[in-house]
Design a binder for these strands. Structure first.
Ligand SMILES: Nc1ccn([C@H]2C[C@H](O)[C@@H](COP(=O)(O)OP(=O)(O)OP(=O)(O)O)O2)c(=O)n1
Ligand SMILES: [Mg+2]
Length: 665
DNA sequence: ATCCTCCCCTAC
DNA sequence: TAAGGTAGGGGAGGAT
């Protein structure tokens, strides 16, 4: 069975009887965004999953854009006992096809079939709220009813305003919002007036000097120091921020070495024989914590912010757990409460961000001694092309991989000596295979997958192990009984494309067959820089929101300076509490939200915080979310342009030169 | 066709 | 209590 997201798992109480149902149950929970209560109009039905099924025994297929969204429809169908099918099989049973509009081709294809009943989303919604299945014929989309070009045309041109099923709230943007946005003048307007960003409010009562009754919590975004505190404590921020630091470092290394010794040998091309190492620390954060607590190595251990051993229901995340803990079913990302259910004797240890950074630097330092072709996976994970260690005459045919394993052994020993932590190394002729080999190698081992045996070796592995198969894709595949890589190898390509989309389907099936011509890339051009906070966002007033937004703009501005880029487009991202959603289980978390983004073009490439701020304030106004409903706020700058080389960079960019001593390969 | 915007998904 | 970030791939649907 496919793994569940932590969020879905968290909320999983009743275990459903059928696989399909279980899939849907998970999906619903996943969609509720971390097991918050189901909200809005859907709550009426979805909150009572055991209610007798309006759609019992009914097959439903949803296609194209719908409102409510496909996901919400799925939830409705499932919670009322229906069967949600991912693609249309040659009809043997009655299948309800839910669509707002159909292409002429589909009208023709489906219109004549007795077993296909094409209905609008309103049929699902109305039937659900009516508590019985309503006559489908009255819910046919116009294009089906008329069956003429004229009505189809009308349908196409009127979709924006016609809203047949106003029963449900829109998932995404509120209707009111669409109107406002549409009514606005073109975004050029942002360029003309040059409005100034809102100046800071003197002291209206925000800020830590307790503003009367109950001053803003130290852990809430109303506090001026929030952003800094938050980033200092956020592991996910650390992961992302340090990854880009590493990438910048690797680029420097490569260019510096290139300048000093001439360009290194280029990495082998797609068709050529390659030897790839995939190196990854074992339970990284947990292993670091255990360095100073060797007494605990044989006990189940995990790293989290929650240190109180008495709390039984904490929703603090486990960042990493050791392999002893994994034997209890504990996984990275799980909440403390859940982990304690699985293993009451679990020991929690604190984070040590500085140690992770130091160890990661040491790790990459060593890696660059082995090859200039290093791709940063994360703090604790890297891909190396080490082909050049194995002269051409050695590898054809050979390959019990002894030589490769020897080099990996040496690397592992060196990393362990330098860091006190273990890595595992996967070896293969492509990145996917090396990654799968690394998984097999864990913990503290190494494994080589020879290309001749690859397809057979990976066939029994769970499809979830493939990069690109996350929670959603795994569950889609599971609906077609594809749970192993081998089954994916055999799957019908066109069915797969219907299920996953053409690109993803093709890519995954290729990967499943061990086909992967991606090169180890030391450098890719950065295309966006952004920042986002989805925790502790609790505002009362607009001035507080504006102030926080300004912080975000300054943050991004600084990062752009560090990266020596400017940008010509800003995106504002906002999460809004879903109506009806109560406080999330996770303390100060965002809970169940709708997400919105809005883009503004900038007149000139810039990284001026005030310019970003002005644009973002405007976008925020467009979105018209009441401050109290905000649960996350973020901005992203796109269409990046590098500073002209030379003094600007030297002046503005914080130094990376002290990151390390130097390269030597 | 191809581009753009607004999503969703994935990985650590 | 608790620290649910971030960049990139990709799809749907509208504009051009
Ligand atoms: N949901 C997650 C997943 C990972 N991490 C952090 C902590 C991990 O230690 C580190 C590396 O992630 P890995 O996926 O490599 O997991 P581990 O290194 O912990 O375990 P292993 O690689 O042995 O499976 O990233 C996290 O904070 N939250
Ligand atoms: Mg790891």
């Amino acid at each position: 069975m496919a793994a569940r997201t932590p969020d879905a798992r968290r909320e999983l109480e009743p275990v459903q009887e059928y696989t399909m149902r279980q899939y849907m149950a998970d999906k619903v929970r996943k969609l509720q965004a971390q097991g918050e209560a189901i909200t809005g109009t859907n709550a009426i039905v979805a909150a009572e999953p055991n209610k007798p099924g309006v759609f019992l025994g009914v097959r439903v297929f949803v296609t194209g854009y719908t409102e409510p969204s496909q996901q919400e429809l799925r939830a409705l169908v499932f919670t009322h006992g229906g069967l949600f099918v991912h693609y249309l099989t040659p009809a043997e049973e009655i299948t309800y096809i839910v669509a707002t509009q159909l292409t002429p081709k589909k009208v023709q294809e489906w219109g004549g079939r007795a077993l296909y009943r094409v209905v609008t989303p309103a049929w699902v919604v109305d039937s659900a709220s009516a508590g019985c299945r309503l006559p489908w014929a009255t819910y046919q989309p116009e294009c089906m009813r008329g069956r003429g070009q004229a009505s189809l045309l009308r349908q196409l041109t009127s979709t924006a305003t016609s809203n047949p099923s106003s029963v449900t709230q829109p998932t995404g943007m509120a209707t009111e919002l669409m109107i406002r946005t549409a009514a606005l003048p073109p975004q050029m307007a942002a360029n003309s007036a040059i409005p100034k960003p809102t100046p800071p409010i003197p002291s209206g009562g925000l800020g830590p000097p307790g503003s009367g009754a109950k001053g803003p919590s130290r852990t809430t975004a109303t506090d001026p120091a929030f952003l800094k505190n938050y980033y200092q404590a956020s592991r996910l921020h650390l992961l992302s921020a340090f990854k880009s630091e590493l990438q910048a470092y690797i680029i420097e290394q490569v260019t510096a070495a290139g300048a000093a010794t001439g360009p290194s040998r280029p990495p082998p091309g797609p068709g050529e024989h390659r030897v790839i190492f995939y190196a990854d620390f074992d339970c990284f954060f947990a292993a670091v914590a255990l360095r100073s607590r060797p007494d605990l190595v044989d006990r189940p251990v995990a790293v989290s912010h929650c240190q109180d051993p008495t709390t039984q229901s904490s929703h603090s995340d486990l960042a990493s757990c050791n392999y002893v803990a994994r034997n209890f079913g504990i996984k990275n990302g799980m909440h403390v409460g859940r982990a304690r259910q699985l293993c009451p004797q679990l020991v929690l240890l604190p984070y040590d961000f500085e140690a992770y950074k130091a160890i990661s630097r040491a790790f990459y330092q060593i890696l660059t001694e082995y090859s200039p072709h290093v791709q940063v996976g994360s703090m604790d994970e890297a891909i190396l092309d080490v082909t050049h260690h194995f002269p051409a005459d050695a590898h054809p045919g050979s390959s019990d991989g002894t030589a490769y394993l020897g080099l990996a052994q040496r690397l592992r020993g060196q990393v362990h000596a330098a860091t006190g932590c273990q890595i595992s190394v996967g070896i293969a002729t492509s990145i996917v295979l090396a990654k799968l080999a690394a998984r097999r190698a864990k913990p503290h081992g190494q494994f080589y997958i020879a290309p001749e045996t690859a397809t057979a070796v990976i066939a029994p592995l769970p499809v979830r192990d493939l990069p690109g198969v996350g929670w959603s894709n795994a569950n889609k595949l599971a609906t077609q009984s594809i749970t192993t890589i081998g089954q994916l190898q055999q799957a019908d390509p066109s069915g797969l494309a219907d299920l996953l989309g053409p690109k993803v389907a093709q890519q995954l099936q290729r990967l499943a067959c061990g086909k992967d011509d991606r090169l180890v890339q030391t450098h890719t051009e950065r295309r966006s820089i952004g920042t986002e906070v989805g925790w502790g966002v609790r505002f009362e007033r607009t001035d507080q929101v504006i102030r926080f937004l300004a912080d975000l703009c300054r943050e991004v501005s600084q990062r752009m300076a560090a990266a020596a880029v400017q940008g010509r487009s800003v995106v504002l991202k906002v999460k809004r509490r879903q109506s009806g959603a109560g406080e999330p289980h996770k303390h100060l978390g965002h809970g169940l939200c709708d997400t919105f983004t809005r883009t503004a073009s900038l007149p000139l490439a810039t990284r001026e915080a005030t310019v970003l701020q002005t644009a973002c304030e405007r976008l925020l106004r467009q979105l018209a979310v009441p401050p109290t409903e905000l649960r996350a706020l973020g901005i992203q700058v796109q269409k990046l342009v590098s500073d002209t080389p030379g003094f600007v960079r030297m002046v503005e960019e914080p130094t990376l030169h002290t990151f390390f001593s130097g390269p030597q390969w």
